[in-house]
Every structure is written in structure tokens, then in C-alpha cells.
Design a protein around this nucleic acid. Structure first.
Lengths: 103, 103
DNA sequence: TTATATTTGTCAGAAATTGGCAAGTCAATA
DNA sequence: TATTGACTTGCCAATTTCTGACAAATATAA
């Protein structure tokens, strides 16, 4: 249950003393939807991240990082090989980056 | 295009001089499906990994690692924040592991 | 060519995801 | 204790994505 993105946006919202109703309306969603996003039951759409950042005065890159990290965690959680898989993926991404550099 | 899992099982199959037809039949899939898995166009089902390992005489944990890594790579590829997101996810997984230890 | 191996394209059915609403819980307070 | 407001839960239909299967195209080799 729960994820990092949801926990953070909930915390940021509380820090600004905003109600779900107020944030949700700006995002054009209802409060049940926002509630679910905050509790990690649903995932925000990528296009909504910038708006979240604006409303909550957060760094959009920070939110995107958490949003991506949650998806990774979801894949490997409960896996004994989680850390190994992440290491392999990291190596692959780095390799792709060097390939991109030389082109 | 292409992923690590697919490339490896294709290489292993070639090393054993097996045809797609021979491997596919044991997995109860047709050769177009296996072809797509080898080229990363489709993903093997998790339940098939052990059978892949048996047929190709590979370490099942190795194949599972690649299979998981591919999914991570898919999420973060094309993302400038890929490495940062993976780091955050890794921290989270490690944290969950310590939490699990003390329970 | 002919045969065999692999890849590509397509598609209907299955499965997962989505957005939205109704109803529920919970806490504060009148 | 009744009411109000904030949030959560449960459910569902519509949409989207995924899956397996097949036919056809392409490649490889004899």
C-alpha cells in the first residue's frame, strides 16, 4: 500500500492547508480520484505532473522522479532479485546513454 | 527495439542449435510469438521463465533478473531522470527490506 | 526453384485501466 | 446526538491495452 508520489503530494497539500476538493478541481478530477492517487491506489497521469507541481509549488522534476520510481518499485517489490534487476537495468540505461553520446 | 531477455534467449537457443519451432512447442506457443519475444516485441509470461531456463539450460534467476530489468528499462528509457528515478526506487526497496527484517 | 526458418501484419477476444458516482467512515462541533 | 465537512471505499461501464492466433511476407539454405 502507498507509494512515494502519493505520500509526498499529500504532505505538500497539507503543508499548504489545501483541501482535496481544492486541488482536485484544479486538476479536473473528483476528490475520490485524488484520494486514491494520494494513497497510491491509482496513478496520476504523466501530463498531470506539471500541474501538480504548480499547485503544490513543488519541483516538477522531483515529482516526476518519484512518479517513475514508484513504477519501478511496483515491478520489483516482493522480488528477491529486486536489487540485482535494478542494477542490470541501470547498467543497460547507462550503456544506452553512452551509445547515444557517440552518435 | 530489442531487450536483454530476448537477446539472451535467442543467443542461448542458437548456442544449442535449437529452432524456434522446437522451443516454441515446448512452451506451447507458436513461432511468431517466440520470434516476438526474442526481439522484445512481446514479453514472456512470468510463469514461462522456469520453462525457458530448463529448455535452454540457463539459470532461472538470471532470466528472471533480465526479465525484470527489461521492464524497468522500459519505464525509464527516454527519461532524462532515469538514473535518478532508479536510485530513488533502489533506496525505497532497500528501506522496505530493512523494515521487513525488523518484523 | 523448393523447402524450411523466421519475421511481419492483422485482428478478435480477454484482461486491465480509467473516470465517475454513490455511499461509507471519521472527526469536529453545534 | 445530529449535522457538517473532509476524506475513503466500493462499484461499474467505458475505454484502453494486452494476448494469442493465424495468414502472409521475407529470409536462408540446399
Amino acid at each position: 500500500m502507498g507509494n512515494q508520489f502519493g505520500s509526498i503530494i499529500k504532505k505538500l497539500r497539507a503543508a499548504k492547508s489545501l483541501l482535496q476538493r481544492q486541488v482536485a478541481s484544479q486538476l479536473e478530477m473528483d476528490t475520490p480520484m485524488l484520494s486514491k492517487i494520494e494513497r497510491g491506489e491509482r496513478r496520476a497521469k504523466k501530463e498531470q505532473l506539471v500541474l501538480f507541481a504548480t499547485i503544490l509549488e513543488a519541483d516538477p522534476e522531483y515529482l516526476l522522479t518519484l512518479w517513475l520510481a514508484d513504477q519501478i518499485t511496483e515491478i520489483v517489490q516482493h522480488e528477491a532479485l529486486a536489487l540485482k534487476a535494478m542494477q542490470v537495468a541501470e547498467d543497460e540505461v547507462k550503456y544506452q546513454l553512452t551509445k547515444k553520446m557517440n552518435s
